[in-house]
Nucleic acid binder design. Sequence first.
RNA 1: GCCGAGGUGGCGGAAUGGUAGACGCGAUGGUCUCAAAAACCAUUGUCUGAAAGGGCGUGCGGGUUCGAGUCCCGCUCUCGGCACCA
Length: 919
Amino acid sequence: MTNPTHDYRYTSELAGRIETAWQDRWETDGTFHAPNPVGVLAPAADAPQHNAGGEKYFIMDMFPYPSGAGLHVGHPLGYIATDVVGRHQRMLGKNVLHALGYDAYGLPAELHAISTGEHPRDNTLSNIGNMRRQLRRLGLGHDDRRSFATIDPEFVKWTQWIFIQIFNSWYDPEANGGAGAARPISELVEKLGTSDPAVIDQYRLAYLSDSPVNWCPGLGTVLANEEVTAEGRSERGNFPVFKRNLRQWNMRITAYADRLIDDLERVDWPEAVKSMQRNWIGRSHGAEVDFASAAGDIRVFTTRPDTLFGATFMVLSPEHPLVEALTTPEQAAAVEQYQVAAAAKTDLERQDDKSKTGVFTGSTATNPVTGSEVPVFIADYVLMGYGTGAIMAVPSGDQRDFEFATEYDLPIVPTVAEQVGQEQAYSGDGTIINSDNSEQFGADGVSLNGLTVAAAKEAIIAWLESRGQGTGTTTYRLRDWLFSRQRYWGEPFPIVFDEAGNAHAVPDHMLPVELPEVPDYSPRTFAADDVTSEPEPPLGRVDEWVHIELDLGDGLKTYRRETNTMPNWAGSSWYEIRYTDPNNAKVMADPENERYWLGPREAGGAGGVDLYVGGVEHAVLHLLYARFWHKALFDLGHVSGEEPFHRLFNQGYIQAYAFTDERGTYVQADLVEERDGEFFFEGKPVNREYGKMGKSLKNVVTPDDMYEEYGADTFRVYEMSMGPLDVSRPWETRAVIGSQRFLQRVWRLVVDETTGENVFDEGPASAQALSALHQTIADVRTEMDAMRFNTAIAKLIEFTNFLTKESVSSRDVVEPLVLMLAPFAPHLAEELWQRLGHTESLAFADYPVSDPALIIQDSVTCVIQVLGKVRGKLDVSPGISEEDLTALALAEPNVVRAIDGRDVRKVIVKAPKLVSIVV
RNA sequence: GCCGAGGUGGCGGAAUGGUAGACGCGAUGGUCUCAAAAACCAUUGUCUGAAAGGGCGUGCGGGUUCGAGUCCCGCUCUCGGCACCA
């Protein structure tokens, strides 16, 4: 294998030696240690200061779950990108905080524990070890002192502490000048003059409630709304999910709905993610209106109060509490039958069947604006979980109501002129008609006729409010965050119950509450479709752990521990804070460190991590939860900013082809051959699919494969040069060679492949080479600043190709090239930097600066267009006058031919680059 | 249905309204070699032409402009999210 004439050739083997050596040195030297303002991570006066005085730059990856399957080449894409950004920012003089922790609670380790009996902690720690090894070999510039896992007792302690802060607070809508804020529960106790848990507990931001929850028998646990797909199945495992009334912990995230929407304006996030969050929170403005009935007022929610005159019937959800009172004896049998049928349907079935069915209750209610009696129906297209569970039906303005009215032959009254004559509802803007009740109400009446929809809404809400029959209001789709799980492998709640069943926080000094050892890790699981099953957490089986004697201030008493555990979103809801002060045993993070790294940079700013990179799949789950916790902690004075992540960037995914044979079985993808657009495995044709990389698809390529074959630097350069970071794209192993060739060319500018001698020269670079260099620096800086690493690398390749072709290897041009290459291929760059005579790491070297004075352009290509088509090109001096350029252009032979003797009507000159001739 | 992103060579992808296809892969030819690999050099959107050149070309149809991948209008397809949300 080794070619004696090429001992110093930049092969994967040599790259590997260089890479591991530098990784060791970086670790020994603590090169990437980011200095904190205070505490144990503040550097001693005589230690390296590492840009401590520079502007801070806090960069984060969405931290990984340490899977037992190991990494494939898609996983590190984001980590490489953030490392490139971090190294670049460091060379710009910034104090860069970049570390990687592990989101280590999670289902796979628990499932592994259930099937093997291995403790999930042991399995998780060994997976973390494996992942650390794979990632270390990539040469990421992380501050290893700041790495942690969410299962570390020290981390769990603060996760539980935060839970207690939330448990011990309530949302005061009056606080903060009416904007609302979390406040200590003690203030509420004082305000209400009672400490009765029956009163107080229902105000807490973390509270227990008996409410319909998503029960997933297949997983043996309940799930948050965000963890259930639109199809009514669990996002994890794709098991059916049923609605059950169960007593569970919730987080009052709905109190923050407005702030979570409004503050999206204050962060620099992709529009797609912002819109997903807005969508999920689903704020809609409208009115609540009361319709009088024999059973009392029926309150409806509508976003179109302007169409009230067109409300010709009402529909209640089958589960609505007033249904029983409204149902007349004659209708009782039909109503009950319909209710039973609706209850038997799953949410999915109810959504699937879009035909409009319903049953008349036998009663009517009074339309408050027309005074007329309208029939009240029940129908399953009205959901109890949204608005008030009852609607006023306006068939002229709402397509669903229109369909129902058509089905049951109910009157359709247009209230917007544009609907007249249409065979369907009209929900757009227009001119209001048929909306005047001054005849019935005389001087107290109102007329909306002639108004626009928006004006009519305002007018009718004012009228309703003046009569006490309605009020302008806002509703949200967002539900409170269901926070308990019936799992073993999660943070225990720091909560105990007294004999009366009231919840108490465990005192701080007893944190963390650690998981007990259990004989059996599994929750009781059930057949996936067993609707009647009940959740049963594994911790409930450990009697000696559950029952505990404590003195909570009123003497030693017996308490019962909460046996649910937290969802695995808990740790990731605050980990950004812990990175700023990971070893602090006294507080979650020293306020000075927290403020330095995460606080607002300017007055009125929301603060947060400077750059957060991760996949778009967390758009509403993790990112919504983390924002909520951060805001709650802000309200309570524990953090200095209102948003955790200032700038968010969603990287694309690396995807891969997979191949199936005629039986539909996956075949080893790397053994498939392509001939004329057809694919063959062992001579037989196979089908190509495009999608994920995965073991079962037999198309996995691992970073280890790449280290082995090309080295980490080549792998890094390839991943960064494949395309824009935010776009998904297919992996192609055979294209990696291009990146290796590039690095080999750079290597050869400095090192003789045969002798290993340095070949760069100390002579001055030519003006032409300097010009190319400074043009490249200017271009690369622009691309780096915009995170367009693929084009930055293209510029570096172009420059390298220029140097190779012109045989230029003067130190003056090679050094800046090495520095610009350093963020992408740090090991190679360090090695060359050392060969260029530097003893210090280039991690803190100044990034090259372009000197425009050195960029010479002695000639420019001028394009000559005739009628918009390129007909000729000229090499001209950049300073050429418009007159001279025009004359030259008009004399160019091919241009003369294209003009073909026609009159020149107009000449547009953009000297020196363009002349456009119109004939 | 609503919201968001996108459609450019054989492939991944470049292009402040001003030379479409930078850079890379692959392919073809060459140098070196006994040979091969590697490396290096050249060519590589497509049709036409000996060449010079010319025609066509950025999902489709219109428009604005001296000039459109880029701006405007209308459609279409792909991907992602939400969805009987009143």
